[in-house]
Design a protein around this nucleic acid. Structure first.
Lengths: 171, 171
DNA sequence: CACTAATCATTATATAGCTAATGATTTGGA
DNA sequence: TCCAAATCATTAGCTATATAATGATTAGTG
């Protein structure tokens, strides 16, 4: 898979130049820019991490996200894992099944509320995260290397604002 | 699917608080914040648009992206569509097949280089985009409604910087 | 012309993830 | 106490997408 040629007709600024030709009403250009780049950035990040950091452990982005959550919290319920990763509980069931087959986590029915399933990271899962995380974090550092410390904080703050706005409107 | 409870143990700030307990070396906290929120923002955006704007036209996010590109440029090669959306040419083939079945676009082998396939939007495809786009753009405006004009431009600028950095490191 | 290497689209196959349906369990009245 | 409604995980079936293999075509070289 190749990324877009920076001189392509589909590069953001060229698209913005063509949009008025096909569209009638007034446009909020910076809103278009934000939307376009938010999704592209997310896809690039996922792709970069899967290629450079996760493939050698045979983990998908989603599987890593869930294992990461378990590493942080040791044990979590299915619905919590789903809410954190923005996927359905059905998808969590599948991913957990795969992780369980690799002995990276295990599931256990809650004793008080037998509808709940608690998922716990195994020793092997913890070892893998300890082995993997420094390299993964290095990837996080790489993607912001062009930004100053202040710019990094600004970017994170603005993204939180956007996310909060979307979550309110979607609920 | 539900979003995460803002008071969850997995909420960003709580995770950052727990990370030092499981990790050894020093961490770049703002890099973690940027990475976490870039992906979440992208997923929220996709989800919001599919639910609120695209489902009534029975278009997936990817299918919309491709139709949008065709709307802007009228006609494009398979590989260009792939590069723009960050997917493989094989995936484009499938999506185009679906769009062609709905008569929203048509494909044609290039006359000069018979390896290439040119995909062209149909009249019906153009009508759908003209019908859909104002509402889609309204969604783009909604997601930045909490941001000032200046903040919107800053966010777009910082995202472009991050994307450019990732594309260089991935090539 | 002929041969090779590169490029491209397609197909086959597998996985991730979704929605909807199901079954198990708990909760909250009546 | 008992029944209805709500909650939760899982399963089934589907779509989107990825990778790898294949076949077709072109470009380059001699």
């Amino acid at each position: 898979m190749k990324f877009m040629d920076p001189n392509s007709d589909l590069e953001e600024l060229n698209v913005l130049r063509r949009l008025p030709n096909v569209q009638l009403g007034p446009l909020n250009v910076s809103a278009i820019s934000v939307a376009t780049n938010i999704y592209r950035a997310g896809q690039c990040l996922k792709l970069k991490m899967e290629r450079e950091k996760l493939s050698k452990y045979d983990l998908s982005w989603t599987a890593f996200s869930i294992l990461y959550d378990l590493w942080i919290c040791t044990s979590l319920e299915t619905r919590q894992l789903a809410a954190s990763s923005g996927i359905t509980t059905a998808t969590v069931s599948n991913v957990i099944k795969t992780l369980e087959n690799k002995a990276l986590c295990m599931r256990e029915v809650d004793k008080k509320d037998r509808r709940l399933v608690n998922v716990t990271i195994t020793e092997k899962g913890i070892r893998i995260m300890q082995d993997l995380y420094p390299d993964f974090h290095q990837g996080e550092v790489e993607i912001v290397k062009e930004l100053s410390g202040e710019e990094q904080e600004t970017l994170a703050k603005l993204l939180r604002k956007v996310i909060k706005g979307m979550q309110l409107s979607t609920k």
